[in-house]
């Protein structure tokens, strides 16, 4: 069992068992965060793989000013949001193609996302919540997912997002307000 500093040192040496240990320690946290943001299991696995590849490549530039987990969460949220942006731009491009009569492929809206950890009795409500979360601004979405899905405290979220504690509080407040408005509209 390696402590964090030893793990970082071993990773810098390119030690494969250390990398495997890192992946096995953080893979579920990375995957759970990614799946909350991208709302698709295959995409979340892609994101998780990209996160560990980036960790492997940039471990030399990691200054250890923050905890390793904080750094990995930061990479995860950035990667997941990048993935979302690229998916949305592909969707827009597909729409343009269809407008010009080039895209014969039908555009499929993603089906409702069902988080694998949600109990059956809450499944429908959770799917509605995820639909609303998807429409939140990126920073509110990040804060909300880290808090609700990963149970991170506001202090931990502020370290991941590199913003002040009051900024996190404000983000969470606005996220809840926006979600409530969206759900009110939807409920009619």
């Amino acid at each position: 069992m390696l402590n964090e500093l030893e793990l970082i040192q071993e990773l810098r040496k390119g030690n494969e068992p250390a990398f495997k240990y890192l992946v096995e320690t953080y893979q579920d946290r990375v995957f759970n965060t990614a799946i909350g943001i991208v709302q698709n299991a295959e995409d979340a696995e892609d994101v998780a793989q990209e996160v560990f590849i980036q960790v492997f490549r940039s471990i030399h530039s990691f200054k250890a000013e923050s905890k390793l987990s904080t750094w990995i969460y930061r990479i995860t949220t950035t990667r997941a949001l990048d993935h979302l942006r690229s998916r949305k731009s592909k969707k827009r491009f597909g729409l343009i193609q269809r407008l010009f009569g080039d895209g014969n492929k039908p555009l499929h809206e993603l089906p409702d996302f069902h988080h694998p950890g949600v109990t059956l009795d809450r499944k429908e409500n959770a799917a509605r919540l995820f639909r609303a979360i998807d429409r939140l601004p990126e920073n509110q979405k990040t804060a909300f997912i880290l808090h609700k899905l990963e149970d991170l405290s506001y202090i931990e979220i502020s370290a991941v997002m590199q913003i002040s504690l009051s900024a996190v509080e404000s983000l969470m407040h606005r996220a809840k307000q926006n979600l409530r408005k969206m759900l009110e509209k939807e409920t009619g």
Partner: peptide, 10 residues
């Protein structure tokens, strides 16, 4: 609805 949910695993 997400309170107390299990974490997704790879």
């Amino acid at each position: 609805s997400l309170d107390g949910s299990q974490k997704a695993t790879v």
